[in-house]
Design a protein around this nucleic acid. Structure first.
Lengths: 119, 119
DNA sequence: TAAAGTGCTATAGTTTGTCAAGTGATCCCA
DNA sequence: TGGGATCACTTGACAAACTATAGCACTTTA
């Protein structure tokens, strides 16, 4: 890898955050711990296979913690670790940006759709 | 789509930002306009097919502007539009987070790699 | 004159993500 | 007492996303 040639934590962070569902997962967990299926629903329908891969990755990176409460019936909870909680600032920045710039896009799109539906 | 049922600009923003290369592209362009190939190199080797798709998408969203300076020899430049420039805050937040939390991970990983190479 | 550069596009191949179904135990309602 | 729902996943087949590479039509540089 080019890790040593020009290692850059921002680049690394982007690599992690741009994986599909990752930011949604973090955002969902910022509101508190969730179970596996619960989390899947919270992020808007991520499939269990991908979800597990992401959660394992995030756990490996130390961004979240998995706690098994009981094996049978299975009961697990996923909770952000401190490093994960600190992503709040990133989500907040996205939130602020989105409210300022994306609402307009949304309105335009909805507009197109409805006029397409009417026209 | 569920756009109208529970439209959320943050969710929308995440959808855009989590596309592969998008954040890298924005980050590269925050330093000033770049040509197509130049940009491809700047983000760390995005292939032209994906790059074009991303750029078109970002242009559609109004985050960047494409300017053709000459057809032949081909010369184009890509530059962030105001909405794109405002993503600086998001990148900054990622930057701050990464410096605080990912350096440690990086050190651990490099450690693993080198010990794996040695062992 | 040849090599290297520009911004792409096309095509084929690989990686990544998704869907559907299934597991074993327990809980809840009738 | 039974049936269905729920939990946290796993598996395997499939589709979507991304990548590598070649090429175009031309200019600039060596």
């Amino acid at each position: 890898m080019d890790a040593e040639r020009d290692y850059c934590p921002v680049h690394e962070a982007i690599q992690v955050l741009q994986e599909k569902w990752t930011m949604h997962i973090v955002r969902a967990l910022l509101d508190g711990p969730l179970g596996f299926n619960e989390l899947g629903r919270a992020v808007g329908g991520c499939n269990p296979a991908t979800l597990k891969v992401r959660l394992d990755h995030l756990e490996d990176l130390g961004l979240l913690q998995r706690t098994v409460h009981s094996q049978m019936p299975p009961r697990t909870s996923y909770e952000l670790a401190p490093a994960g909680v600190d992503l709040q600032r990133v989500i907040d920045a996205i939130d602020a940006w989105a409210r300022e710039h994306l609402d307009i896009v949304a309105i335009a799109e909805v507009d197109e759709e409805s006029s397409a539906a009417v026209g």
